[in-house]
Design a protein around this nucleic acid. Sequence first.
DNA 1: AATATATCAGAACAATTGTTCACAGTCAAG
DNA 2: CTTGACTGTGAACAATTGTTCTGATATATT
Lengths: 231, 231
Amino acid sequence: MARKGKMMEERHQKIMKYLVDYQLTNQYSPSIREIGDHIGVKSTSLVDYYLRQLTEMGYIDRDERVSRSIRILREYNGDRQGNVRSIQYSRQDVLSFPVLGRIVASEPIPVPGSDLAYFDSESSVEIPRKMLAGHGKESDLFVLEVSGDSMVDAMINDGDKVVFRQANKASNGDMVAVWLANNEETTLKYFYNEGSRIRLQPANPTMQPIYINDPKQVRIMGKVVMVIRNL
Amino acid sequence: MARKGKMMEERHQKIMKYLVDYQLTNQYSPSIREIGDHIGVKSTSLVDYYLRQLTEMGYIDRDERVSRSIRILREYNGDRQGNVRSIQYSRQDVLSFPVLGRIVASEPIPVPGSDLAYFDSESSVEIPRKMLAGHGKESDLFVLEVSGDSMVDAMINDGDKVVFRQANKASNGDMVAVWLANNEETTLKYFYNEGSRIRLQPANPTMQPIYINDPKQVRIMGKVVMVIRNL
DNA sequence: AATATATCAGAACAATTGTTCACAGTCAAG
DNA sequence: CTTGACTGTGAACAATTGTTCTGATATATT
């Protein structure tokens, strides 16, 4: 049975906290000597000793003979029970999307790559890459802000940011942005191809679907990948 | 006017791409010699020369005499016009929230810190810290998943993740989760204190508000900070 | 033609940094 | 009491790494 000195646990915790803080401010890891200074240990060997333990415990990861190569693998939570998980924070890959424009019901959706000149929008939307997993190529994604109450039946509110994926066809069940040539408007609906006709189902279950018999009336502009409402 | 050799632009681009790739796989920056090897430059001085240029151009940032301290400030886009902004990706602070439970209209909202035993939920929601700016202390935030169609009038759908901030009072205009003692249900509404009565306004503008005269009937559980719908 | 910048190598240097070894005191368990 | 893990220092070493200097050629601008 591995005994535990009173220093050890405290040191482990202090080191882990230091690593997180340091990486958050500097974007890279501290050197062994910097760690030693911070936790009040004068020999690099003792720091190395603790780092080896933390590695073995699976908290960190290092590359041999590479300076400042400590990676934080998980948050330190000592011996506490694992069933109350707190908010963790870490550095992850974040995609930053410029908000290209607004969805207006009476206009087709502007799509990147078209000859429209986009001005640099001040606003952008940040989304962790992890959250977009399984949504295909990232370069196909773009973000629009919803203007007005025209999308209420899609459960989308004024000011919401909608992440789209460029597409000109859709599978059943996808929420899509479609341009209805007849009505001259853009709308967000769930898409169902029922063979003889296309059914566009509002997200709000109390509302009735739209049926369209002529496929040419429906132009799919993109699939809705994510909706973000920041209050 | 600064002239530009044909190599320069290509090198800058190559270096920036390498930095991004390297950081993505290793979580730390390459050394100058590693960069040199990769772009086919045998002297460290030339690499340093390019890195100084990139620093001056505002693409990267370094700390003097610190190994592997290159920070990527923005994505390299060369001389392209600035009005078509592409998706950028970088490493940022991300908060990872465990999804604590589900909102069910017929039950009060579970709040972290209560004596409920939370099991480790597999699902978590990642949100860049930047997106949560101005929402108060991060430790007061928690996430619930919406179950069923009970929140449709709040423009919130089955499966949506809702970020709450713990609160027991609200300002006018806040979207809040309230427990209505009378009806024995939780609901999400916009909150307005009109002096003699409390008005709870559905997000859907076509729906009618609820008026409550007895403040004791209304228990505020939390404010809605963000809604995320991942399709 | 003269000048400035871009391009490039090589070396030397100093600083930072990871690794390892020797040594030693404390303390709990077998 | 011996063993082994914990706690700790100090030094020495080697490797990595950033910095700087010399020197050289090329190329476009003035």
